[in-house]
């Protein structure tokens, strides 16, 4: 063992905790937005802003790209329309050919209303499930949700959390960066 490494504490902790990240609390959306711009410019990657409602302009302040949820809705819609058309073709025009009023066995016109509704149905599922997938939700455990202070996030407080897994993270340096943004409070969150 390298003699320079600090010795383990003699009494082992009952729960092994390691820091999840540094949490900075802000009181107004303007404060958190200016802070986010600084953190973005400092080049952090594994960090996030937490707010009770979406703050207008925060995506730019964080340097986020346009959300990809639209693709899920689009492919959901395409799947819905295809399902409708092919289902009706199979049922009325192929598997049990149904002659109604001497009209063609299949026409996209009479299949349209149902396909249209299925387009909407599948696109909606695509939007919601795509959003949950991109957000990695549902998630039943999150270190931040254990923090007493973090409860303000659904009330009226704003937070920036820089995670320890960020390549630029360093206990002192990151703390100093966050302190320079003028937070209301600063603390380390355990995992």
């Amino acid at each position: 063992m390298n003699p320079t490494t600090p010795t383990e504490p003699r009494v082992p902790k009952l729960t092994a905790t390691r820091p999840f990240g540094i949490l900075a609390e802000y009181l107004t959306p303007a404060d958190v937005m200016h802070a986010a711009e600084k953190i973005r410019d400092a080049g952090f990657t594994r960090w996030d802003v937490y707010s009770p409602y979406p703050v207008h302009g925060m995506d730019d302040a964080m340097g986020l790209k346009n959300s990809k949820v639209g693709w899920f809705s689009f492919f959901g819609g395409v799947a819905g329309f295809t399902t409708g058309m092919s289902m009706i073709f199979y049922m009325n025009g192929w598997d049990y050919k149904l002659i109604v009023g001497g009209k063609p066995l299949f026409s996209p016109l009479y299949a349209f209303p149902v396909s249209y509704e299925l387009t909407i149905l599948f696109a909606s599922f695509g939007s919601l499930l795509g959003m949950l997938f991109l957000n990695r939700l549902p998630r039943l455990y999150h270190p931040l949700l254990k923090s007493w202070r973090f409860k303000g996030v659904t009330h009226d407080k704003f937070y920036i959390v820089i995670e320890t897994t960020d390549p630029k993270y360093s206990e002192t340096q990151t703390r100093a960066t966050l302190e320079s943004t003028g937070p209301n409070h600063l603390e380390v969150v355990e995992d």
């Binding site: 937490y50 409602y53 979406p54 703050v55 959003m131 659904t154």
Partner: peptide, 16 residues
């Protein structure tokens, strides 16, 4: 569903 109010989540949420 474990919602934290993360802005990365809000971004997808608002789009959805």
């Amino acid at each position: 569903l474990g919602w934290t109010g993360s802005n990365r989540h809000w971004s997808n949420y608002e789009k959805a």
